[in-house]
Amino acid sequence: MHLLEGKGVTIHFGGLAAVSDVDFYVDKGEVVGLIGPNGAGKTTLFNLISAALQPKPGEIFFKGKKISGMAPFKICRLGIARTFQTVKVFSNLPVIDNVRIGALFGAQKRLKGNVNPEVNELIKFVGLTEVANTPARDLTLAYQKRIEVARALATKPEVLLLDEMMAGLNPTELTESMELVKKIQQRGVTVVMIEHVMRAIMGICDRIIVLDYGKKIAEGTPKEIAGSKTVIEVYLGVTNVGSKKA
């Protein structure tokens, strides 16, 4: 049994299939990369997994249990957390409260009483201790992306969906960010990441899934994907590599 599995996942926007008949799986402990040109349906697939959208038709299973059709907050409590492509921090709340909400509401066995030690540990983990009491709106994009990671981790997820965490970062931030993903994997959290930064994808993923026009066109190890003709065609023949919007 896979940790996370999708069967025939499909969704239409208007007449257009944004995601069409995609089968995928994620096993425990993996870092899975999700790549593809702009508009390939990557973020839509995340939205389907985290229940912001419902597949029609298609089913998604988490630990063998069907989760498509559930409310987003329940998916989160079951153990699937996510970040957003365009950051969605609680901008008026300080960093510490952003993370605290994850700890108070997200975890399945919610802690009664004091969540502060855990929250402080996570803030330290993502390197935001110095700005813990600053409102999220006053921080840079790189910091806000880390708030989202800490907030997601605070919900004690088994699977973490990272949506373009590395877009728009400078080289130093990028290296830090890659380290962070490895550290998350070491905590025992399974990671699925959408990314355009090839250095990051090739460097940290165990397995890569490639989407194009809503369909899965390739799947394999970074090496296999780098050598795949179909993937090279899609990337070089149709769309530019490395643009920011999906």
Binding site: A71, F73, C76, K88, F105, E148
Partner: peptide, 12 residues
Amino acid sequence: DNEEAAAHTGVN
């Protein structure tokens, strides 16, 4: 602040 993010952070 952000209803969508709240829902995905486990808030009912």
